[in-house]
Design a protein around this nucleic acid. Sequence first.
DNA 1: GAAAATACTGTCACAGACTGACAGATCTTG
DNA 2: CAAGATCTGTCAGTCTGTGACAGTATTTTC
Lengths: 199, 199
Amino acid sequence: MGKREDHKAATRREIQLATLDLLETAGADATTVARIAERAGISERTFFRYYDSKESAAVPGQSELLDTLLARELVPGASPAEILRELIDVCRAQFAYEVEQVEFKRISRLLLHEPRLLQAVFRQEQHLVNTLGSALEERGLLPGMQAQLVAELIACTWRVAWQCFARQESAGRSSNPAELFEQAVQNLAEITAPKAFGR
Amino acid sequence: MGKREDHKAATRREIQLATLDLLETAGADATTVARIAERAGISERTFFRYYDSKESAAVPGQSELLDTLLARELVPGASPAEILRELIDVCRAQFAYEVEQVEFKRISRLLLHEPRLLQAVFRQEQHLVNTLGSALEERGLLPGMQAQLVAELIACTWRVAWQCFARQESAGRSSNPAELFEQAVQNLAEITAPKAFGR
DNA sequence: GAAAATACTGTCACAGACTGACAGATCTTG
DNA sequence: CAAGATCTGTCAGTCTGTGACAGTATTTTC
């Protein structure tokens, strides 16, 4: 409902775009909150009412992924492996979707060269891991450590797939995202295969 | 070579201790660089010649672990699983060692309640993962994605073990660190077991 | 449709994090 | 001990991030 919501969403978007533009054209050092605000047509003070730092204005939230993961109904009796498998399936779909978004490649390119931005992504991931881990535990699906581990493995797989994708993109080779994600999952299963790894 | 090195090491240590003291007694908000510097008997400017932020003055570096991991000789023909296993063994030993250090519990307690400090730890871990991943790839031990994945799994296991340890400590129950780490490794192998997880 | 409650924004003021430049003190080396 | 390298403090400055307040726009209520 309403004019207010629309305006907020528009401002939020303006800020994000202004930030990306500046990062690309002027570089990370020259991208100050003052210049972002100016370009977005708002005051510096208002910027901080939308984002708590310029880094978080540049990187996308992972709230969609998190919501999708939390929405997945899981049967109480399932083994950790089964739960991980289900959740990985959710990620696979989401990854293929997000990778096609307009801003995705722009942001990826920036992230590869700006450690400070990467930090903001990790902050998002930390939140996702914590929330998901706690949810798995509180719903009685998994005991503490396993819940934590499953959540970490989700984030881990996502990160590896993303990083490979971003690197290949920046090297010119464009690759099939779904296939890449699948490969990450396969490797994960192989590397930790009990016959060679466990005891 | 002598006096200068000693003095630097001493100052570095003083800063770290001053930071921990302040964090514990005054809380994170009241812990400013100015107060740390004052307590350590140095100028504010000098603080930044030792640490690049107050967060990194509080959290320990992971350079020891990284060095140990990099020093491990690995046979070129080994499978990813074997390599992971070898490196995990290194971690197991290091974990049992570090957990006994004097500052470890103090820092752990702080980390559980101060997200900003936790961020500094992740920065360290990111560095470890990157360096280790690159090393594994450059030495021709593993192809890119697998190298990355192995490095991530190392960090992931470490993090989970540490977090469980810290939580149990803060809840009063003191637990055997080696056993806890072992349990994390076991769970990792189990959760990703191909029979239930792979296809 | 006006008035009251609510939400958004800009201006101002400020504390804290960090950095470059320079000068003086301290250590190392031949 | 003298020359050179290294460390430190002072100063001055930019940038981030936040609280307080007043004015404006929107929604709600009657």
